[in-house]
Structure formats: C-alpha cells, structure tokens
Design a binder for these strands. Structure first.
Lengths: 343, 343
DNA sequence: CTGTTAGCGCCTTCAC
DNA sequence: GTGAAGGCGCTAACAG
C-alpha cells in the first residue's frame, strides 16, 4: 500500500468551513491580516475536527523550498552511526535544525554505492552535511561528488586545500589537543613517548600527531615521538601492534592513543604484562566523552566537542540558507584537556 | 534564499533529448520495455550532461507516497540522541530503511511542544518510530497523540495494554534479562541483593526487577530483593542513594544496577568505602554495549540488542507499508548474559 | 515504443 | 477580507 489514504485536504477544510481554499491557506500560514476573526475560528475548528495536516510535499513543490537537511554518513560498516562521536554530532545538528523547524534526513551510504544513491539522483533536501570515513583519496572523491550536487555542503573533520565554493568544514582543534598532550607529558619528563595510530590515513589523527610534535619542538626537549601503526583501531589490532612494539623495543615511558579506545586497549595490555600505569608508563587518550566519568581507572584524555560541532554545523547551514553564503569556510572548535589518573 | 535555483527539470531533459517528458520519466523509472535503446541512451546522456536530479517532492506528490520514515525522539533534554542506546537503535533503523531506499527523518521534540510540532501539523512521512522518555502518564499521552495521526506507528521499549490499531512495540526481553541476573546471583548463594533503580517509572526497569523476582520465586530460595530508588540515574544521585542505603542497612551481598551506568557508579562508591568486589559484594549491570570490552574491571551485565531493535523496527515498518498491517504487534528481542569479573 | 492529457495539494497573483 | 485561475514537476492512463 504505502499510499496516501483518504486524508483531508485544504479543499475539504474550505468546503466544511464554507470558505475558499485560499482562506484556509492564509490561516495555515498565519496571514491573519487577510482573514476575519470569525472566519479564522471557523477554519481552525474545521482543521481540528477533520484532523487536517498540511502536505509538506505539495507545499514544498509549490514554494520551491526544502525544509530538511541531509546528513550523509559514508562508511563501509553498516553500523556507521553506532559510533559515539558521530552520534553526538548528529544529536547537536538535529537539535539546532529542529528548533528552526528544519528536519534532518539521515542517510548512510557505503562509498561504492554513493554515486548511484538516492542522495545523488534525487533532489530532496536544502543542503548536506557529511561525515566521511575511508582512505584519503576516496574521501576526497566523495567530497567532489557531493560538491558537484551544487548545494550547500558541510563536511566534518576535514581540512580542504583548494578554494571551494559553497563548502564549509567543521572540525575540532585536534592539533591544539595534541599540543596539550605533549605539554602535559613533557612537564612529566617523558622522553620516549609512543603514539598508536590506525593505519588508515585520517587528517584528525595526523593533526593530533603534529600537535604532539609541536609541543616537543617548542619545548626544546630532546624527547622523541615514535609512531606505531595498528592495522585498524579494533581492540585486537591495537593490542597486536602494541605487543609487537613492546617485544622489540625498550619500554616507552608514555603511550598516547590516537583515541580513547586505542589508549584503553593499550593500557589493558600493559596491565597484563605487569607494567604499572602511570608509574612505569603513562597512558593518555583522545576524544573523551561523558563516559569518562565512569571509566576506571580514569583515563587522561582530551575531551571532544562533538555535540557542539553538530550545533555549529546546524547554525552554519541555517545561516548559509538564509544569507546565501557560509559565514566562515572552516569552523574549528576548541578541545579541553581532561586530567585523569593514568598520567 | 533557500530557493530552488535554476535546476533542470524533466521537461528540459526531454527537450534536449528531443523526446517527450513521459519518455524521460519512463527512463528514470526503469520502464525500459517502453523505451528504445537508442532513445534511452540519448536521454541518459542528457540527464548526465544537464546534471538532472529528479524532484522527490514532485514525485511524491504525484504518486501520493512518502519514502521517508519519521523517527521521533521525545525528551526534555536537547542531548536526547547523545545516548548510546538511542543511537544504536537509530543506526539499525537507518540501515534497514536505507537499503530499501527509504530515508529516516529525525525529529527531537520536548514533550510540551509535541502537539504544536511539525510532526503533528504536517503530513510528510510514511510512518513513525518513537522513542519516548518521561513519566508513564505523559508517555502514554504522547503515544495517544501519535496514534491519532493515523499512520503506522512503532514505539520502542513500551508495552501497550489495550488493543491498538496500527501500532507495534519493539523492545528487548528485559524480564528475561532480569531472570538471567537472578539465576546467576542465586547460583552464587546471594541472599540479600539490592537493586538500584531510578525514581522515574519505566517499564523496562520494572521488567528487569520482575525478572529478578521471577528467578528468586522459581528457585525457592529465601533470598530477598531490596529496591533502592535514586532520584535520577545520574552519577551523583546514584551514589547518594547508595550511600544512604549503606549507612542505614547491613551490607548487601550483591548490587544490581538498573543499567550499567548505575552499576558502575555504585561500584565506584563501594571501592571508595573499601568494599571488595566481587568478594564482599557482587555487582551487576544491565544494557552493556560494545564498550564493555573496554571497561575495567569488566562488569558483569546483560547485553542490549539495541542495534537489532532498530533493524527489527525497520523491517516491521517496511512490512507494514507493503502489506497494510504489522506482522506482530509486539516484537521482543532476546538479551545475552555477559560474564564479567564483578560477580 | 512514444506522445497527450490531466491532476496530485498547495500557494502566488490578481480580481472582486 | 475573500475568491478564482493557474502552475510548481512529475507520472497514470490512455492514444497512437
């Protein structure tokens, strides 16, 4: 079925109230200057009685306007949204949009099928927000593809090189966060820190690494950062990479996870091997969320403003829609250092 | 702005390809029996060249059909979605819908403004899924309101009493989970278990309590379950409630949290007071997620099938849309016991 | 295989 | 203040 069953239209309401459809429309749109009070009452009463609901579809067609923003999540995994970071971003975004009577249209697409997806083939939202994962080249391909749609576009956690039209990036200050971590460790005389990062190229991660290096360079310390690549950020891969490193190198005096999960996986391995944290090795993560209060031991980390990023994107998009242009091409949100007991 | 700017229509494509709009429409809809190969090629080429994208709005109006499902999250907190459970449900739901070329339209609404919201006033999706929080009476009010919309409705984590039309509930087997917990604790000779629950009435929580009681009754054990009410499920409130209880009662031999956060908050308090877990008191949670692998100590809990619930709801809705009726009025998904080190 | 006609529900424009 | 005509972009039904 999935059909529009017998549903009251403006015409029905008009008929019942003994007025013309135009008058009903005026009432619906709050153009009260054009409608007598008595008429309005009658119309409103009939709307209620007939359980009338305006067809968004017909209205949007007529006024050539969309009241929804598309949130595109490009990821191979079908569980794309089941990620706390993305989740927070979507939450913030939805809230800002909803308050402005916009809707969020969620679409998860595997990279391969994006070109044939409804998003690309159909015109149905006023603009797009995108969270893209995958290798760098492919991510850029996706951005090109979405940009080709010639609609306002916001991309999360990316940095764009060339001049771009009608694209805005929203990201957190990963490099600044890296610096905070570096400063914190250097103040504790760390000399041989190791940072575990996933194999996959990811600008946020590179910025975190760069931030740590900034801190070392600025301090004039002779500390040296070693990068250890894990095949993925899964629990098993991280532990394997960490084990491989420990087996063939002297014990590092600090382990930095590219994110909290990585840090915890590494820390659990250290525990297993009898290494005392933080006495023998300090451990620090990245992208902590509310849940950090519940973790035991309390991991030192850098708090992600993911929810605010969503809000920021929402506001940016609404502004773009209203004024015709983004206020800024790149929105960078500050992160906050969170002191735990693991450093 | 937010206007449809100069955008190619079917007419433009038809003109450019030298055919009628109807032929273009046939190509778009894959009705190739009605279109010659040469013509099709020409049309497809022009679609590409003109960067044509079909207007979902116009199509939906014409065929009187919506290709989107509304996900309504009724909650006072603007951070509604920033909750792992909801997040997982939405992820599962979106995936199933997207594969069927349906879209998910997300809308978060505070209870108070629901009646005046776009959801209620406008007709724009084929059906609704709802996650409602708040006191029992108000939740029922929301369900009534949404049911009054006369569209297919799926509600998560509720049990409906009376006969309902076109409503389906999707929930996890909380009572079964409670039984698993009860059995586990009884097998360990627990006699004075305490269960910490939030003040707010919540059917899922009541079912968990009932399940534990079931287990006790079935076993014929003389164990007795004490319920401790916390003002909310926040860290502070849970610890306050727990402290209040401990100060005026003998030490329980097991603490059951109505969910994992509650359990962990309680456990941290026990730690602070020097109570050894699990030797002096066992601790057990509810609604574990992937993150349980990262928690330390590894909490014993019952794993929530939240993601599957989303998938289940998606399938149920698609079936309803296709056949005109829900296959089942109440979908109950099994939970899985997860053995940790805290029991 | 291709084209013509008509209309989905709403709102802009203009007349009364 | 209110109403009548017309059309947004698309496709069902029917002609050819």
């Amino acid at each position: 079925m999935n059909k529009l069953k017998q549903r009251a239209t403006i015409k029905d309401v008009a008929l019942a109230a003994g007025v013309s459809p135009m008058t009903v429309s005026n009432v619906l749109n709050g153009r009260m200057q054009y409608v007598g009070v008595a008429t309005r009452k009658r119309v409103e009463h009939e709307i209620e009685r007939l359980n009338y609901r305006r067809s968004t579809t017909a209205r949007n067609l007529r006024v050539a306007e969309q009241r929804s923003i598309g949130m595109v999540i490009v990821d191979e995994s079908p569980a794309f949204l089941a990620d706390f970071f993305t989740c927070q971003v979507v939450a913030g975004l939805t809230n800002v949009l909803n308050v402005a009577d916009y809707t969020l249209t969620l679409q998860g697409v595997p990279m391969a099928s994006l070109a044939r997806s409804m998003i690309v083939r159909n015109y149905e939202v006023a603009g797009f927000c995108a969270m893209i994962s995958g290798p760098s080249t492919e991510r850029n391909g996706v951005i090109q593809l979405l940009a080709g749609l010639e609609q306002p576009l916001i991309v999360f956690q990316e940095e764009l090189a060339g001049p771009s039209t009608d694209i805005c990036t929203v990201r957190q200050d990963d490099r600044g966060g890296g610096r905070l971590i570096g400063d914190h460790l250097l103040a504790r005389k760390v000399r041989r820190p190791v940072m575990i990062v996933p194999m996959q190229h990811w600008p946020a991660v590179e910025n975190r690494v760069a931030g740590v290096r900034d801190a070392i360079a600025t301090s004039g310390s002779e500390a040296e950062l070693t990068i250890v690549h894990a095949n993925s950020e899964s629990f098993a891969d991280v532990q394997a990479a960490m084990a491989g490193y420990l087996d063939s190198h002297p014990m590092p005096d600090a382990v930095i996870g590219a994110n909290d999960q990585i840090a915890v996986a590494a820390m659990l391995l250290l525990n297993e091997r009898g290494v005392k944290v933080p006495d023998q090795a300090r451990v620090i993560g990245f992208n902590g969320f509310e849940s950090h209060r519940y973790s035991q031991p309390h991991l030192t980390t850098v708090l992600s403003p993911a929810y605010s990023m969503g809000e920021c994107a929402g506001r940016a998009m609404l502004h773009r829609l209203k004024t015709g242009a983004f206020a800024r091409k790149d929105e960078v949100l500050p992160v906050v250092f969170e002191n735990g007991v693991t450093t």
